[in-house]
Design a protein around this nucleic acid. Sequence first.
DNA 1: GATATGCGTTGTACTATACAACTACCTCTG
DNA 2: CAGAGGTAGTTGTATAGTACAACGCATATC
Lengths: 144, 144
Amino acid sequence: MTHRDDSVETIQQEMTAFARRARATAARMHPELSLVSYTLLAHLDDQHGCRATDLAAHYLLDKSTVSRQIAALEKLGFVERRVDPEDHRVQVLHPTEKGAQVLANVTASRRKAFRERLADWDEDDLDRFAAYLLRYNAAQERLG
Amino acid sequence: MTHRDDSVETIQQEMTAFARRARATAARMHPELSLVSYTLLAHLDDQHGCRATDLAAHYLLDKSTVSRQIAALEKLGFVERRVDPEDHRVQVLHPTEKGAQVLANVTASRRKAFRERLADWDEDDLDRFAAYLLRYNAAQERLG
DNA sequence: GATATGCGTTGTACTATACAACTACCTCTG
DNA sequence: CAGAGGTAGTTGTATAGTACAACGCATATC
């Protein structure tokens, strides 16, 4: 096995290790919003509203999964639906005031945790690490 | 927000995006062994056998979760239990011949997928990316 | 020996997820 | 403009992974 293979192996193992832990870690950090619902709510906030179908397409989730996630977020009062007047099949989803507030809190606490984890990294390393992750994920999207 | 914060934000987003996809991707790639069971089986192989409790501690899983995962792997004939003659509470778990075989196949196919994804990276980048991931995960383990 | 502790299993419950069937709505085509 | 076919979203059903709590044994300690 070449050095190149060693690196690939390490990347594989470490990405896997991270993935295994991520959900539980997220749940521990902020029980009010799971990793998935956080992600969806953040997307809504970011996009200033979008359709359930868009969420499903973007995150490679089944529409039924999104439907239930959104239903849960709505029940919590974090999301509201606005039927599109142009097309009555469509509901445009928006974070509510409350949802945006909770999202901001969770985002802040996540950012804090990440910042602590990365506190002793110097700026160039952070920069390169971020770039590598972007590149890696882009490749994954491209190749499935 | 500083440039440093931007990088932290990107790392957070990209790690999260990756984590969300990892299970489903793994399931699609090799339905015969989920991400979790793959990980556990690989650990057994690597350690030349260990106890369920050790797996639980190492992967931060509840012992009941490990117990059921192992039961499933045993049912598939991928793992065997050997009661420790020194301590009859303990079962030392080992991959079977068949289990080792399947593990090798899955590992090979995972490696292939990762290799493809990383095919156009030059060796220095792979090296650095691997090092960053190790460093990041180590920090996560230290800080919860 | 009585009580502690440690290992593993089982009962129960919850979350995330997929697939398939369905309803309601829209669009296009003859 | 009527019907065919497509799209958005919901609901029924099933599965996997997970946790927590209660338990059964085995061992260790006092």
